[in-house]
């Protein structure tokens, strides 16, 4: 692994992220919209029998959404790099394909975790009372989940050559991943077939882990769906698997 290469790939992404104010702005605006408009609207329909309002219930899901969109967006930028030729500059360098993939996945991780942390800072407004330990735990979960989703995004990006495929990825992969992640409704209340879909979605485990940390209850309809230890195992395992697949895919195409 070439650490200089990994460092500079991350530094490039970070620099561009800081420079593109509009990207940061829309990345923050989307979750706010869902939280305060969709959440507020639906909370009138959903009884809060566990002492948690609907807006509070979707908070981990909205953090997950922030991660999902910004990680995929970061990884999909590989397609832009291919289209504008910059990818060749990276591919012809004496750098292993695995380092390139790790660099890209870490780029997505850092950018996504920053955004998730900004949304997380809203917790007092939503009536939560989180301890330092809880905050750090949520941020760590966000970071690991981002890495897994970013690596998944890189695998996607290796299959697509041009940015026309961007809307395909958004509509047929990212949106279903969001809706079938337990973000907006508990997985255990879904029909059988959709439950299976949710269980093969890595985002489900990230959001579920955050529910464990943020909420105090372990039973009832709004409680977490999966044991925390399994959440953690799946996130770490999928991270490794996706990075290796992406590395192989790069090797083949490069």
């Amino acid at each position: 692994m070439e650490f200089n290469a990994i460092y500079v790939i991350v530094a490039r992404e970070f620099k561009k992220f800081i420079r593109e104010r509009s990207r940061l702005f829309s990345a923050i605006a989307r979750p706010l919209l869902w939280l305060f408009i969709v959440g507020a609207g639906l909370s009138r329909l959903v009884p809060s029998d566990t002492g948690v309002s609907y807006t509070q219930f979707i908070f981990p899901g909205i953090l997950g959404m922030t991660i999902l969109f910004s990680s995929i967006f970061s990884s999909i930028s590989i397609i832009w790099d291919k289209e504008f030729g910059f990818m060749k500059e990276i591919l012809v360098a004496p750098v292993s394909r695995l380092s390139i993939v790790v660099g890209k996945a870490l780029s997505g991780t850092i950018v996504s975790t920053i955004q998730a942390a900004i949304i997380l800072a809203l917790f007092p407004i939503l009536g939560f009372n989180l301890s330092i330990v809880q905050i750090i735990a949520v941020i760590l979960i966000c970071a690991f989940t981002s890495f897994s989703i970013s690596a998944f995004g890189i695998v996607l990006a290796t299959f697509y050559e041009s940015y026309e495929s961007f809307s395909v990825i958004m509509n047929f992969i990212v949106m279903p991943m969001f809706f079938l992640s337990g973000a907006m409704y508990p997985v255990k209340l879904l029909p059988e077939i959709l439950q299976i879909c949710a269980k093969i979605n890595p985002l489900t485990y990230g959001i579920d882990a955050m529910k464990h940390v943020i909420f105090k209850f372990e039973t009832g309809p709004m409680s977490p769906d999966i044991p925390l230890i399994i959440d953690a195992a799946v996130i770490i395992l999928t991270s490794i698997i996706f990075v290796l697949i992406a590395g192989k895919a790069f090797e083949r195409k490069g």
Binding site: R12, K15, K16, F84, G85, F86, M87, K88, V92
Partner: peptide, 14 residues
């Protein structure tokens, strides 16, 4: 090796 490709491969946003 060093290479200048036929089509530009610079990052225009840097």
């Amino acid at each position: 090796i060093g290479i200048v490709f036929q089509d530009t491969t610079l990052d225009k946003d840097l």
